[in-house]
Design a binder for these strands. Structure first.
Lengths: 219, 219
DNA sequence: GGAATTTAGTGCGAAATGGTACAAAAAAGT
DNA sequence: ACTTTTTTGTACCATTTCGCACTAAATTCC
């Protein structure tokens, strides 16, 4: 009975390309793709170095429209970050939920991570959580909380992975899932950083392989 | 005649607090402390969000003096980064060179790292190499090269550590020093990032302990 | 004491920045 | 046809930003 009549958030993708007949002048942009463009810019240059003019040019929206649709620059940044998190979570959710052996699951997670971090026409983008931690997180409490959330979410996902693996006997008795999860996150962070320094994919994959050898206790 | 009469670069620290009787009006600032202040600002806010006015206020130098002493903003940033690297290297060099057991050496390294990352009156500062990778490194080749240098320098130092430990029998036969070194660097990176998200020192120390348990193969 | 030299400090200027007011435009409702 | 609603697009404003002339000050050399 408590049906939310605003707008169907998840059904929008498939079920609502039918125009809902809004009242006034129609938008000249698609909010989703515009937010994607903004995200890409923020990921490349960071908050401070990205101007509203840049954002306006990239999204095709003029500044007043930008402001009306997403709020001021900071709000747009926050929405971009949420979008980033949603995308990343969606890309990894299936793998984290799967029942494949530990090593295979981790390999697939890191493959996706590298895809994300190395994408971008004008150079690799790295991890937006790491970028935000490195910039706005110290001074902006709200943004900082989102970053902490992003970090712990990954820790937890890895933690479940390792705990599950241990239960299935894939890890030695003494293995501590929490510590291994932090190491797995640390490996994510180090490849994200190195990706932005334009370290080639091959090297990053080698780092991942070495980390997996240790974490999965391959002898 | 080929005598370089400019200024003695390395002897300056100890041997030359005696005024060398420079020619014109004396400086109203000490370049070293000014650079330190600039570094602190850059570490807090990053390149783009730090204005010349901020730098001028923090160093006590007016803009033309700043410009004359260090060049433009980018050059000042580069010099600040070099200073950061020099300081960090100096703080860790003894430990890396020491003959203490692996675990003890690593513990001391991470203690110093946390001291560096958590210092700063207005909040933790994190690692400047990580911050720079997360911002300027993609677009500025010179800065990127310095970042890569910083990353590999740490990898190598850790690598020597682990190789040495393996030779002394502190590590199992199958251990791969290079992989362990990357994991050690990754742990540095992850605590640097979390520090900026204001994760308390206790938690960071716990992460380090867990990582050491794995890396040192404590059973 | 005066010339030479080096730095400090004021202040300017051109460009960029974040944000908004306001009118024109494009659609639906009546 | 007219009103209402929503968005667009131009134009503008106040502020900030970077960089640099240019003058005043402080010191050494002769």
């Amino acid at each position: 009975m408590v049906q939310k009549s605003k707008k169907p958030p998840s059904a929008a993708k498939i079920a609502a390309p039918v125009a809902p007949k809004r009242r006034g002048r129609p938008r000249a942009y698609e909010p989703d793709v515009a937010l994607g463009k903004a995200l890409d810019l923020f990921r490349r240059d960071g908050f401070a170095a990205t101007s509203l003019d840049d954002l306006s040019a990239a999204t095709g929206m003029n500044r007043p429209s930008l402001y009306g649709a997403f709020g001021d620059k900071r709000e747009l940044y926050i929405k971009s970050y949420q979008r980033y998190r949603d995308d990343a979570r969606a890309a990894m959710a299936d793998i984290f939920r799967s029942d494949a052996p530990l090593r295979e699951r981790l390999e697939r997670i890191y493959r996706i991570a590298l895809d994300i971090y190395l994408s971008g026409e004008s150079g690799p983008r790295g991890c937006f959580t790491v970028m935000t931690a490195a910039s706005e997180a110290v001074s902006d409490p709200d943004i900082r909380n989102m970053v902490v959330e992003g970090l712990t979410e990954l820790d937890k996902a890895f933690g479940i992975c390792f705990r599950h693996a241990k239960e299935r006997g894939e890890l030695p008795e003494g293995a501590d899932p929490a510590s291994l999860a932090h190491l797995a996150s640390a490996t994510i962070h180090t490849i994200a950083i190195r990706a932005r320094a334009r370290v080639p994919r091959r090297e990053l994959e080698a780092i991942v392989k070495g980390a997996l050898d240790v974490m999965c206790a391959a002898k």
